[in-house]
């Protein structure tokens, strides 16, 4: 009992504004403070010898930043880019607590939602085989359910930094 109360309390601390976006028919939410900006899809330069979920690099006003294809990362079916496909530029903290700027490619950006503490529920557990670690919780609003992403986990520096070193 007390454990679940604590969990609920944790959930309450997640209350705040979230940028929601669509990815393969699902709705996801990103903590608004992590988002730097949203840009339209531009020409992405592929970088060899990187995992497939790294689409490549782009020029963000003179700065070169990597772009992650979230569909590939989440192992969804690969779909052609549309007009609505865009890049959300996020600031992620990697393991060394360095802030890294990255872009993530999503199908469509929806809106900014104000989610209150009582609207958030812990992520459901599907048993041991399903990893829900990168989901902070589920936000329920009148119309829909939004998965709140722990973006630091999704783009964990560990996984990405491993990339280049394997020759």
């Amino acid at each position: 009992m007390s454990e679940s109360a604590e969990k609920l309390k944790n959930m309450a601390s997640l209350a705040g504004k979230y940028l929601t976006f669509r990815l393969a028919e699902e709705e996801y939410g990103l903590e608004i403070l992590k988002v730097q900006e949203i840009i339209g899809l531009m020409n992405v330069t592929r970088v060899p010898k990187t995992p497939s979920f790294i689409r490549g690099v782009i020029n963000l006003r003179g700065k070169v930043i990597p772009v992650i294809d979230l569909r590939v990362k989440f192992e969804f079916d690969i779909k052609e880019d549309t007009d609505k496909t865009c890049i959300i530029v996020v600031q992620v903290n990697n393991d060394n607590n360095h802030s890294v700027v990255m872009g993530i490619i999503v199908d469509e950006v929806s809106e900014v939602l104000d989610i209150k503490g009582n609207q958030i529920e812990p992520s459901p557990s599907f048993g041991a085989s399903v990893d829900t670690e990168f989901i902070l919780g589920m936000g329920k609003t009148a119309q829909k359910v939004v998965m709140l992403l722990d973006i630091d986990r999704v783009l964990s520096g560990d996984e990405i930094n491993m990339v280049g070193k394997t020759e």
Partner: peptide, 27 residues
């Protein structure tokens, strides 16, 4: 010369990226 962002480590054969006149990045 620009570094390829912090998310991507060093890649053998590539020393960095350069921004071309059309705004794209070349390796």
């Amino acid at each position: 010369i620009k570094r390829l962002g912090e998310g991507i480590g060093s890649i053998s054969g590539i020393s960095g990226g350069a921004i071309m006149s059309d705004g794209n990045v070349s390796l």
